[in-house]
Amino acid sequence: MDELARILGSIVSNATPLVIASIGETITERVGVVNLSLDGSIALAAMVGFVTAYLSGNALLGLLAGTVIGMLIALLIVVANIELKQDQVAVGFVLTLLAADLAQFLGQDYTRIPGPTFPTVPIPVLADVPFLGQIFFRHNLLVYFSFVLLFGTWFVMYRTRYGLALRAVGERPATAFARGTNVNRTRYFYTAVGGAMVGLAGASYALAIKPGWANPPVMRGDGWIALAIVIFGGWHPFRVAFGAYLFAGLRALASTIQQQTDLPLVLVNAVPWVLMILTLLLVSGGFVERLIRVAPGPVQRVLRNFLRSEPPAALGAEFSRE
């Protein structure tokens, strides 16, 4: 039992950057902007976060620096889209390559050295709850932050008028505009928030989950995984977070199986990408819709609400008043 709690606890911890990044991207995409730069943004934020923390000796300062990097990259995409009418996907793609190369070039003298990290801070009382305490409440601050972010995002998105405006801008910008919402300002704000979370996720690798900086970066590919998790999660914070934990769990399972049998390592490396294709097939390929149709009547509505996987209607489209 203790062993199980320990394993689940480490999955929660390892999933944290994915949870933060994919919830950040969920916020961004719900307001109608695709930030395709995740893989590069995360690497650059991790590098800048690590080097800032290393030079200043302060992990919190590093986290802040990484967060700012993520925010700036996201803002660049939305400025290019709103002010300059350039394609979000094109700018995001260039930025993902550029940020990854920048991280490698600027971080070349800082690889594989120890630096400041966030310590484990058990939460008093809660940490002593049997089983659950071990899983959820004996972590570093970033893990706790991911919990707050998850519930906070859900609450703002579905229980406040700000969230209503956010979703309206992503679904029907013209209607939102007619109702008095400043569409572009809303997009700037939430894209910046989402990008900041992506940056924070990047820094959390370097400062807590997989401390340090390396070339090639240890988290390479996770940005793409986070983008796919947003789709898998149907742009809903809870489902997205569930996707991130599920993914981290399956990855842990695969590497455990590999260590205990003599399964070749390549199979384990292939697992994330096979999962990516299979899950996207599952949610996009009409399978879910068929499942809903065979379900009993009253369950259908609940299922459809929970398994909804259409993207925000105005995702990627620019909005102009004309």
């Binding site: 290019a80 350039q86 094109a90 260039v94 550029l98 190369d101």
Partner: peptide, 26 residues
């Protein structure tokens, strides 16, 4: 120096040209 500088130069160049296209359109 790390040879990833090539990617940095190429990425910046493409980004700048895309942004300049936008400025021109505007």
């Amino acid at each position: 120096l790390d040879q990833s500088l090539a990617g940095v130069v190429q990425g910046i160049l493409v980004l700048m040209v895309i942004l300049a296209n936008g400025v021109r359109g505007r």
